[in-house]
């Protein structure tokens, strides 16, 4: 859950319950809508991946993504990507595409590299609006595509600012 990606649907609130307890939660009426939107967004991710991969097969392998098992804050999630490749003129990674399932937009970033990179080893930080699937696709110089995916759990930061 992130400040920036927060839609009205996922906005966190401190609420005072009958017992005087603090609760951090999404507005309940919006919950069902969120689930429905989640389905639609997953479809958006599939479409975004298809736009890159076309009719090619997309086996798991050669590419590895690493994200913390439990994300402390969805605003800046450290992401590492490595692809097994000799990175020669004849055989290298051309691009790496990163997608998410439930962010408002499925695309995260595209990295274009070539033999001069030496390795295909990238780190960046991304936003995750919720617990969801992150998918990375490696596009190779031989025209093949490879994928890796990770399910990430996003926790909430407590003691938020009134916004």
């Amino acid at each position: 859950m992130t400040e920036l990606l927060t839609t009205a649907v996922t906005r966190r609130r401190f609420l005072i319950g009958a017992g005087g307890a603090v609760m951090v939660m999404a507005a309940p009426s919006a919950r069902a809508q969120f689930v429905a939107e989640g389905e639609a967004r997953s479809a958006a991710m599939r479409a975004a991946i298809k736009a890159i991969v076309g009719e090619n097969s997309l086996p798991q392998g050669r590419i590895k993504i690493e994200l913390p098992p439990l994300v402390e804050n969805g605003n800046a999630v450290p992401l590492s990507i490595a692809v097994e490749s000799p990175m020669t003129d004849a055989d290298h990674v051309k691009a790496i595409h990163v997608f998410t399932e439930k962010n408002p937009q499925p695309n995260v970033a595209v990295f274009q590299l070539g033999p001069r990179a030496g390795t295909a080893d990238i780190q960046t930080r991304m936003r995750l609006a919720d617990t969801q699937l992150v998918v990375a696709v490696a596009e190779m110089s031989d025209g093949s595509f490879w994928r890796d995916e990770v399910e990430v759990v996003v926790t909430l930061a407590a003691c938020l600012e009134e916004s």
Partner: peptide, 22 residues
């Protein structure tokens, strides 16, 4: 050009990127 990245809104504020080159 040895490296290029295209960012979407899901890239964190104050973007950080690390990569390699020969």
């Amino acid at each position: 050009e040895v490296f290029r990245a295209e960012f979407f809104p899901a890239v964190s504020a104050n973007p950080f990127v690390s990569f390699t080159t020969r």
